[in-house]
Design a protein around this nucleic acid. Structure first.
Lengths: 386, 386
DNA sequence: AATCTTAGTTTATTCAATAGACAAACTAAG
DNA sequence: CTTAGTTTGTCTATTGAATAAACTAAGATT
């Protein structure tokens, strides 16, 4: 049986979700305003709002300003009806945050790690989550879910098939966490999460089609089309770090040659820097002090990034490209060469109206992204329960 | 006011569309079967079917086989309730077809042209359409629309902003045709149309995420994600012919360097062949007669195609990649090098389950694609009228 | 012939959105 | 202060869709 049939319950569910979404986006807002904006009838809005009030997803505050008649009752989204946990597993750190339902970070825990075998990382994560839960304020729904961003290939069942920089293969991360914490767990590729984070809270708000470039040790890309994350057949989309930009170019760890990330990643940068420095931070320090060699190195990386971004723009004709993750720290030096490369290489029509921005959330793109996934999921589930 | 509100009319419209779609896909089918498959109630199906009967979009044939009780009434899609016109404007030809609502070609007109200024082509197209209309059988809805595939950049308003190989800029094609024929006109990029054609009638049926490569004089790409054409912000998506695959490679007519189509298109092939031959057909003829030099040339083109396809697969993680347009004629020689390149270069997880096929519709991909767009549009409009 | 099965229709019911009357609470004008 | 008009929100009746269940139709099975 196809599940594509439509009925009144679906209508109600969607209208309720619409009302809730409007309150989330435009609070403070009155019932009358919601009717106005949504096109729903006053009475319909009233009834749906009352249900949302009972579910404590929204609350009323006192009367607002009159606009020439009875004063409206102001509605707010109850962003502390529950909390989400967002986790970013990096190559040498684990970042955990507790957020409210609007993506505000309440508690943040960052832990450096120098070894990444799965059992080690798993217990680190478990401890951090447990202590977050301990510190969490009381609320109606408690922890509504846990989201994890991983630098690797994640399938739609929440397994990490391959994370080369962590040395992981076939890790059942979702299962392990759900078993322990008994809440919904969402595992996503770090770039996909970052893309969603930027779209929800960062540089990408109000854009339909966004390509987010996570330029770190490697390069991953998160693809948001028509406001929704595109995941591909198995969930593996966005491995553009292994796009060939130089036919017989540098060999890449993936076995191919001339991959974009062999030219434009942090790893590539450090390799090119050679003896000069062994961390991105030290290179940035040198550049800040006027080291011309390092500056021209950044310029080169910028140009290489630009070639890949050219391919992205010609392929997707996006509203916006966002550069994020570690290399976004070097914005000062790489932005101009990126823009120059695009200007010289990319089709004119595609450049028009296209926005190039840098991450607005910095190191929080991924955690806020997965946290937002969790919240979205919770809201969807809640509005299912009639 | 947001138009995102849900009500009973939307429910009905969608259910009616669902019923019609099931009849189109699975005819012959009975009311009972539709109820079974869709999950809608028998009575609902009956009522919707009766409306569709009145609109002559479907018809009943005699009773079918009994399965142990009363014999079912068999329903069919009335594919000749109206006709669509599909047009493919190529660099040296114009192909026009009249199709029924299921994409069967009833009349076909192909005209070679050697000059492509817009007024010339427009009047050619107008004459061909007029003669198609003259020969068209009588039907309830007549011509339901005209679709045109163009090798160039088309915006969402149906203007051809740039078609380098035709020498067109800023052509108001949609307006001109609608003014004359007074029916809905859809203008699409040739690769987008081809992708849709293959998905509806050709090699791509039953796949969610398809990338169609139109490898002709240049290279364009049609992107179908979650069964829908992805067009990008302005409708310019899929210009992957100008994806850089060789940093400082061959100069391209677009002003950039190392573009994919400078290596893997018909144009590139002929340039590489040099004095040997001046048409694709003559090269094919040579290869068929065992010319090793030409065969190795095809092999090289295949490898180049493979590099770009590698990028496509790593980016989209698609269900299927389809190679179409003129170079698909050389399948015999290019398929193996394409597959070898992918095997050697593309991420292992992405290769798994990924299908590589060649066009199933040959030179009809584009016309059938635009025709299908027109039909889809007509069906959507019709089911709006309650 | 009697009974069971399946197909499709008819009638009554349910449920969500809506229209419109209404009450509450305010502003503005005299 | 009084009165008219406006805006907000609720209440009641209506509409229109899917649905449930009874029913008719027409076959198969025993």
């Amino acid at each position: 049986m196809v599940t594509m049939t439509w009925n009144q319950q679906i209508v109600k569910k969607n209208n309720k979700a619409l009302v809730l979404q409007l309150i989330m986006e435009k609070e403070p807002i009155s019932r009358a305003d919601i009717a106005q904006v949504s096109g729903l009838h006053k009475a319909t809005v009233s009834s749906l709002v009352n249900e949302l009030l009972e579910e404590e997803l929204i609350f009323e505050s006192g009367p607002g300003e009159s606009s020439g008649g009875r004063r409206p009752v102001i509605l707010h989204f109850n962003k502390v009806a529950g909390y989400a946990i967002g986790i970013d597993i990096g190559v040498n750190y684990v970042l955990c945050v507790l957020t409210d339902l609007k993506g505000n970070i309440l508690i943040e825990k960052n832990q450096l790690v120098n070894r990444t075998p799965y059992p080690t990382i798993l217990s680190t994560v478990q401890n951090m989550v447990q202590s977050l839960i301990k510190e969490m304020p009381a609320s109606r729904y408690g922890v509504v879910g846990i989201g994890v961003g991983v630098p690797g290939i994640v399938n739609k069942e929440g397994s990490v098939l391959l994370a080369p920089n962590l040395g992981w293969t076939n890790i059942q991360l979702k299962m392990d966490l759900e078993k322990q914490f008994k809440v919904p767990v969402i595992i996503e590729n770090e770039a996909n999460a970052g893309a969603f984070g930027e779209q929800q809270f960062g540089a990408g708000q109000d854009h339909q089609n966004i390509i987010y470039i996570s330029a770190g040790i490697g390069i991953g890309v998160g693809i948001i089309l028509n406001k929704e994350l595109y995941q591909g057949k198995n969930g593996f989309s966005g491995e553009m770090g292994h796009m060939i930009i130089d036919l017989d170019g540098k060999p890449c760890s993936c076995g191919s040659r001339g991959c974009w990330e062999a030219y434009a990643s942090e790893h590539a940068l450090l390799a090119m820097a050679g003896e000069d420095a062994d961390t991105l931070e030290s290179l940035i320090h040198l550049a800040e002090n006027g080291d011309e060699a390092v500056k021209s190195l950044f310029k080169k990386i910028g140009a290489y990034l630009g070639y890949g971004i050219n391919n992205i723009i010609n392929t997707f004709n996006p509203d916006q490209v966002i550069v994020g993750n570690r290399l976004a720290l070097t914005k000062e030096w790489i932005e101009e060469p990126i823009r120059t490369t695009i200007k010289n290489r990319t089709l004119t029509h595609h450049q028009h109206d296209m926005k190039l921005n840098f991450s607005g959330l910095g190191k929080y793109s991924t955690v806020l992204g997965v946290s937002a996934f969790v919240v979205e999921n919770f809201i969807k589930e809640e509005s299912n329960v009639l």
